[in-house]
Design a protein around this nucleic acid. Structure first.
Lengths: 348, 348
DNA sequence: AAAGTATGTGAAACCCTTTACAATAGAACG
DNA sequence: CGTTCTATTGTAAAGGGTTTCACATACTTT
């Protein structure tokens, strides 16, 4: 049926091992023989069998990409195609393939990871999320299996975890300071799922900035929501029902901001005249909102690219020590923030 | 090092073949033996080696997913995570894994597909796009390798291609008719890349509706753009520069519509008062535009789900004949279309 | 008691490559 | 001319399973 190395060997009247060596371009084979074998390979249309190769080599040249639980809509966030594009680019350069997780629940995902690892289906794994107390991460760490995190481990004292992250604490702090400088005092924080480390870092940055400015953190101004659009919308309802409405919002994610802005517009609250908004990620469409949103570009593509780089490095040099990469972020000022004029909003 | 089937066999004092039979739950093994072997597997923490299995079985339980050329931004369209979610769900149900293409250019992708197929890395392939004269499709067809298309082959006379598609012709026709009923006569069409079959189908539907209504199709009203946001923006510039501006726009994709609406808002052209818009896909955020957009829901998730279903069927029953599945679409009326009042726009 | 039939198990071949080791031939050397 | 190198190629085992075939039981049947 299929053309194997033996067929090529026969056709070129050499031993299978010779063919194998020609494939890996071993210097121990004479040029004459190489030519002869290559000719035969072309004639017969030979392609190496991937599985046999992996088996003999104990290496798959494949990296496993673990997406978060896809039950909720988080998944539709353009964040994912973009990280994957980054991962994909680097992987392709180094001739690695990508194997995607398909599990829907945390439990399913965990099982899948076990299979990937124990079944030697991939050489390493990239986790596209960082959760607090993540079973998957714990497992990979225990198994001493090559992996990198996008984000950071919740407990940074855990040694030996490579990750690539933004300085989310700093980004959130800066963003809050920016709003403070614009004269805002009642700044609310609309976070994502609290199980994710990024949410915690954002919140800490926000708190710190407020503390530094001597402003008391008001619990009513801090809300969390898992779902992207719906979450954004519910957050707005909660916040706008307060007797003292916030004058500015820090929102965890651009997509959530779309939800927020939609709801605000239904309530006829004008952005940025009545309320300022700043969010995170700068996905492609965030410049297309009405008005275009001010957000923090976190360089999603690089996050993926560097994660792949780190991982493959680890695969190739297992004894290399863990590295942490910080991808720079950058505030992109567009049109959802405005300076608060002193007297103005005194009348609530 | 790793626990193999032989270790299990020894521990349970049976032959390796017996262990193998237990794994595949063969009816020829007594329950007592099965229990004994399973106990041993658990004790030793045995997991079957995937590559060895694939090699012996000649089957990988993996399906290859080919994304379009990721050089341009098309990729960031939330369409992709959503189809993949559909594919992923079905694949997971039937215990198939997903292997993703990483090539950036058409040429790279083609090579990759060749490797996947010849190297027996996957059991079947799903093409996430349908292009005119697609080399990849041609190749898969020639090789008689199991694959399904999302979209449809340009040349439908090619026998034996399974695909899942929307009736894009009909959707575009309906949408055009809808605008006609609202009193629009100057309806423009902003299409995607003309290499994609979907673009052609949309255009044909549009033309047909106009013809049926006895309205001459004006070439100036038909524009195409590859890029999503930029494309949308450029299209608007072109159309709004015409002496007779269109009163309604049919846009190929929701993301593009975001670009269109952004540009329109910069020009201070009001949607829907000055111009009506209707587009396709209904991705998650399309309800979050300002105003929320009227669009055609094409059920992206099902597209993926059914494609996986079709493919796996084909893999399992190679002699089954090719099937075509049409996923129903549905117009979602939101707020970007309005009735044209007779007298109104006469003054251009 | 002999023959026939399930049922359970083991040995060995096979899937395709890689690789350690062996073998051969020709070149260089004394 | 015999010996030692060196360059090149071959042989066989390993990598971890699956599958076929044949054999050994135990149980019916006549």
């Amino acid at each position: 049926m299929t053309v194997t190395i033996k067929d090529v060997a026969k056709a070129a009247s050499v031993a299978p091992s010779t063919v194998s060596r020609v494939i890996s371009d071993s210097p121990r084979i004479s040029d004459r023989t190489k030519d002869k074998v290559r000719e035969a390979m072309k004639q017969l249309g030979y392609h190496p069998n991937f599985n046999a190769r992996s088996l003999a080599n104990q290496t798959t040249k494949t990296i496993g990409v673990i997406m978060p639980n896809s039950a909720n809509k988080t998944f539709q966030n353009p964040f994912f195609p973009e990280v994957i594009r980054g991962i994909s680019t680097k992987a392709h350069q180094l001739e690695y393939g990508l194997y995607l997780s398909t599990g829907q629940s945390d439990e399913e995902i965990f099982e899948e990871v076990q299979h990937m690892v124990q079944g030697k289906r991939v050489d390493g794994i990239i986790l596209l999320y960082s959760k607090v107390n993540d079973k998957v991460m714990k497992y990979l760490h225990e198994q001493n299996f090559p992996f990198t995190l996008i984000g950071r481990p919740y407990d940074e004292t855990v040694r030996g975890v490579s990750y690539v992250n933004n300085d989310n604490f700093k980004a959130a702090k800066t963003v809050t300071e920016y709003l403070l400088l614009l004269g805002h005092k009642r700044i609310a924080f609309v976070g994502g799922n609290l199980d994710y480390v990024v949410t915690i870092d954002h919140m800490e940055g926000y708190r710190r900035a407020l503390n530094n400015a001597g402003i008391e953190v008001c619990d009513d101004y801090i809300v969390f929501h898992e779902e992207l659009q719906e979450g954004g919308q519910e957050a707005v309802i909660d916040l706008m029902s307060l007797s003292e409405r916030p004058t500015a919002l820090i929102v965890a994610d651009d997509i959530m901001t779309f939800g927020v802005m939609r709801m605000l517009s239904e309530m006829e609250v004008n952005v940025p005249d009545d309320i300022s908004i700043i969010s995170f990620n700068n996905v492609m469409i965030s410049e297309l909102s009405a008005p275009p949103m001010t957000t923090v570009d976190i360089n999603i593509y690089s996050l993926g690219y560097e994660a792949a780089n780190l991982l493959i490095d680890k695969i190739l040099h297992p004894n290399i020590e863990a590295r942490k990469i910080l991808i720079p972020h950058k505030m992109i000022k567009r049109q959802t923030c405005r300076r608060l004029v002193e007297s103005a909003k005194k009348t609530v």
